[in-house]
């Protein structure tokens, strides 16, 4: 009976096409379009796109700017509120809101199982230095791996 086979084959094809597209929604995120976010966050590290973290994670970050992963990143209250609104308003719908670090998000960890030498290459310095390997990271494009 050829009929079910054909359906199965067609189904498999559809799945094969769909799986890569669903693989990682974080490989392509909207670039930062908010000037204060670009300026203030971008002073010390790449201004990460709001779509890389869920709103709860952004709120954790903005609640703790006085101790931003061990350093003060304090901002004037009005500037901080403006940036928080942009980040949470354009946040990812997925991700673990209990984790503030992008580099601790399960999808990030899954995508970065690299040899230890990859992290000690000159110019990398840190896992937050996306651009060291993803040249188009500032545009929100991380598909180049």
């Amino acid at each position: 009976m050829p009929f079910p086979h054909r359906i199965i084959a067609a189904g498999a094809l559809v799945l094969a096409a769909a799986v890569p597209a669903l693989a990682n929604p974080f490989e392509r995120v909207r670039p930062v379009t908010h000037e204060p976010t670009r300026k203030e966050c971008g002073e010390c590290h790449m201004a990460f796109q709001p779509g890389l973290l869920p709103a709860a994670s952004w709120n954790r970050i903005m609640d703790n700017l006085n101790d931003h992963f061990g350093e003060s990143a304090a901002l004037a209250p009005d500037v901080a509120a403006d940036i928080r609104a942009y980040l949470t308003g354009n946040a990812a719908v997925r991700g673990d809101g209990g984790l503030a670090r992008i580099t601790e998000q399960p999808w990030w960890v899954r995508e970065h199982r690299l040899r230890p030498e990859a992290w000690t290459r000159p110019g990398v310095v840190s896992k937050v230095n996306c651009e060291a390997c993803h040249r188009t990271a500032p545009q929100g494009l991380y598909e180049d791996d």
Binding site: E43, C44, H45, M46, V124, V125, S126, N129
Partner: peptide
């Protein structure tokens, strides 16, 4: 300069 933690 270069940010010690981030490489920026």
């Amino acid at each position: 300069g270069r940010h010690a933690k981030t490489g920026r």
